Simulated scan of single mutants.
Amino acid sequence: MDMQKGFKLKQLAGVSALALFACGAAQADTWRYAHEEYEGDVQDVFAHKFKEYIEDNSAHQLQIYRFGELGESDDIMEQTQAGILNFVNQSPGFTGALIPEAQIFFIPYLMPTDMKDVVSFFRESDAINEKFPKLYAEKGLKLLKMYPEGEFVVTLDEPITTPEELKNKKVRVMTNPLLSETYSAFGATPTPLPWGEVYGALQTNMIQGQENPIFWIESGGLYEVSPNLIFTGHGWFTTAMMANQDFYNGLSDQDKQLVQKASDYAFEQTIEHIDGLAERALEKITSSSDEVTVTRLNEEQIAAFRARAPQVEAKFIEMTGERGQELLNTFKEDLEKVTN
């Protein structure tokens, strides 16, 4: 049996086992939670802090599934909507196909780059804490927490400093129409790929680049096959933790409060974890490879990329209509409060 077939069988077996419990999910003492990352990565830290609080403050247990154990991002979302999973952590990069307004995080240069401002925004934003939960609820999901993971960093087959240098370069994007628009605006050729195919596609030059937070570039070994790191300052990777709505609604008031408090606890613990994480990850990368280059765009160079952002914003409004415009207005008002 080759490794790929073995992985598929293991994945199917895991899903089948979970399905046996789907009918009684709301009453189960063992809750099931899947996320998109590897052991020790940011989503894994959040999941384990959530688990810690749940198990320290109740008789419930939490089973965590990491990337690949139950499939890719789309798979675990489908399993959550079906009630097979109780909780899921998925970034708007994938949720954007389900909830178009979630793509707002991929409008370049909308988010600040200063971590203090970013964290304040997630804590205080009406867009995050009032509007997004209603949008997720329409899709059968109870949004429990949105949180930042790290600044986007682009990796390429060579260093670049201008949009013109991105011409004809295939850059992997998540399956997200607005992210494709962003890289088209930047001058590249956006190429949607599931995460499991990215390393091999970079290695074989099927694609020439991708974007991710620096900790994920280190954790996934992407720098080994895409060694030129470019800090463009165009945004932060955001993710969201949610529950199956029917499962959540079926909980007792005490358990609902428990879940909310566990989400708040995991958020605060994760914010502590990401403080300095990017610097530590970059140090690991540069000490592991002599081929890595690090390019930090200056303000003049950033201005050339920023000038292309309005067309992405216009595309967002075209895709989401009046609701998207209203959300964008609130988003900007919230950001102005924390950055001024």
Rank of each mutant, 00 (worst) to 15 (best):
Q269I: 03
E299S: 15
H35T: 09
F50K: 09
R172A: 15
G96T: 03
Q103L: 04
E69I: 03
F215V: 11
A17W: 07
L193H: 08
S180M: 10
F316T: 05
L156C: 03
V154R: 09
P159E: 13
T95P: 04
C23W: 06
F316W: 01
S73A: 15
A303T: 10
G187E: 09
Y248E: 00
R172G: 13
W236Q: 08
E149M: 15
I317Y: 01
V45S: 03
V15H: 04
Q4W: 12
W236N: 08
I54E: 00
R172S: 14
A281W: 08
A25R: 14
L222R: 14
G233E: 06
T30D: 01
D264C: 00
E218R: 08
I160E: 00
P108I: 04
V15M: 11
A201R: 07
Q311I: 10
P227N: 09
T162G: 09
N86C: 02
E72L: 11
V118E: 00
V171G: 03
P133V: 07
K284H: 13
M174K: 06
W236G: 02
N329H: 08
S287E: 13
A304R: 15
M77W: 05
K51Q: 15
A102W: 06
F50E: 03
V259W: 04
E149R: 13
N298L: 04
T161D: 15
M206N: 11
H60C: 05
Q208V: 07
V338R: 05
E326L: 09
K170I: 02
R172D: 11
F21Y: 11
E138W: 01
V88C: 12
Y109S: 05
F231E: 12
E333C: 01
E78K: 15
N340V: 01
V119Y: 00
L193S: 06
A240F: 00
F122K: 03
H273K: 13
V198C: 12
I84N: 03
K145G: 02
K142N: 07
F152M: 14
A34M: 05
A17T: 09
T204N: 14
E333N: 13
P190C: 07
T95R: 05
N212F: 11
M115F: 07
Q103C: 04
R66Y: 01
I160C: 06
G221Q: 11
E313F: 05
R306D: 12
L193F: 10
Y183Q: 00
G14F: 05
G200V: 06
I207C: 07
L20Q: 12
E181T: 12
F247I: 10
F121Y: 15
N176I: 01
G221S: 13
A102P: 02
V225M: 05
R323Y: 05
F215A: 14
S219I: 03
I104T: 02
G93V: 06
A303E: 15
E164V: 04
I54A: 00
F67I: 08
L335E: 02
N228Y: 12
L62E: 08
I217D: 08
F46Y: 14
I207N: 06
Y147N: 01
W236L: 06
